[in-house]
């Protein structure tokens, strides 16, 4: 098992290897939903919720079923199917038991299935050989990193709505430039706490 401390894993996932700005995962939702603060917040909550649970479940699945049966090569097929059905289950569960949360997250949950960051975290914890607790902390760090990035990005983007921008650069190109500058800023976290 990997020897990195829990704090190291958390900070590295949150800032140094920020999932969006440094690792380029989950970009579709990042650029797609980041027009309004409430929407970004809802999406982030859904990502935190689903990512933490799904990485825990895929960890159990991988080390207790796939590995003992020598079925590692089914990793890709199993993980994607498990995550897709897990999101459905979580949706049903929330609807039945925590309707309050369901109303807040409802429309974002299905969108999360197609968020490649969720699947990536499942593959990455296998690659990094994380133990169970490390995996959960890692998933929390990654999803909070997603939240930080998307909230900052939405703030800047909403401010730019009223700024004069050259016609051909409106929309996606400007969004990419903002992301470039943010990513430049996050590059500065490299070496933080000696990580």
């Amino acid at each position: 098992m990997n020897e990195v401390s829990l704090f190291g894993i958390f900070v590295s996932a949150l800032l140094i290897n920020n999932i969006i700005l440094m690792r380029f995962l989950g970009l579709c939702s990042f650029f797609g939903v980041s027009r309004h603060m409430e929407v970004s917040l809802g999406m982030s909550m859904a990502v935190i919720f689903v990512m933490t649970i799904s990485s825990a479940v895929t960890w159990i699945l991988y080390y207790f079923i796939l590995l003992p049966l020598n079925l590692e090569f089914l990793k890709i097929s199993t993980f994607i199917l498990v995550i897709a059905s897990l999101v459905q289950l979580e949706e049903l569960f929330l609807k039945r038991y925590i309707p309050h949360l369901y109303r807040a997250l409802g429309i974002y949950l299905p969108l999360v299935t197609t968020n490649c960051a969720i699947l990536a975290v499942a593959f990455l914890h296998v690659d990094y050989n994380y133990a169970f607790i490390q995996t959960v902390v890692y998933a929390l760090g990654v999803s909070l990193g997603y939240t930080v990035a998307i909230m900052l990005f939405t703030g800047i983007r909403m401010r730019l709505e009223i700024a004069p921008i050259p016609e051909p650069l409106k929309g996606y190109p400007t969004a990419f430039f903002i992301a470039a500058l943010m990513s430049l800023a996050f590059l500065g976290f490299k070496g933080l706490f000696g990580l």
């Binding site: 700005l21 996606y172 190109p173 969004a175 990419f176 430039f177 470039a180 990513s183 430049l184 590059l187």
Partner: peptide, 14 residues
């Protein structure tokens, strides 16, 4: 580095 990727695609789309 990562910022370069965002810059390049932004300029290409522009």
């Amino acid at each position: 580095f990562p910022p370069g990727a965002y810059l390049t695609i932004g300029f290409l789309m522009g």
